[in-house]
Amino acid sequence: MSLDMVHDIQIAYRQLVDAMSRPGYLADITEEAGKLNPEPSMLPATQILARMLLDTEVSFGVVSEREAEAVHLLNQLTYANETTLEAADFIFVLSDATPEQLLQVLKSAKIGELQDPHRSATIIIETPSLTGGSKLQLSGPGIRTVAEAEIQLNEAWIDIRGERNAEFPLGLDLIFTDSANRLLALPRTAQVAKEEIR
């Protein structure tokens, strides 16, 4: 069965709405992602996000060893335009990107302006898994007291993200995906702290 661009995308979108409004919530889009033809360049969950969010109105950038292949795929699927990482509305950091490349993206992506904070990048980051990583504590809007995340990723991104998001409402919104078709979102309001080792 192939992906239904109306109903499957709607279900995935509602999962993303839940993830974005409740940081730490692990959204699962396995059923929808399972309907895609596997692409070597990107994870099914990432591809679902691209189909959900991209069109000719927005621009994107890709960071990957297979950049050309991924860009071609996204162009074909969505007709969105590729642009520089500084100007892109959506940036895809794929699983074969190096930790340094991720940091570079976080440093250079646009964070909006005070009068237009929504003109900021949404960064989609592929990870090996959204469970089993070192424990992070999350707080902020959408979280009753404290939430946890266990993203398997080199932790250097946390500080850079903190620096870029220091001047709220400016900032970056991150969406993490993994190979188990899960999503975890960290809007700019989410405070991330490494859990202290006692």
């Binding site: 979108y13 993303l16 709405v17 974005m20 409004s21 959900m52 969010l53 069109d55 109105e57 927005v58 904070p117 929504h118 900021s120 949404t122 959408g142 409402p169 900032g171 919104d173 809007p187 700019r188 309001t189």
Partner: peptide, 12 residues
């Protein structure tokens, strides 16, 4: 387009 605006609204 409405969905993209909604996601930014939730983030801010």
């Amino acid at each position: 387009e409405i969905r993209r605006a909604t996601l930014k609204a939730i983030a801010i």
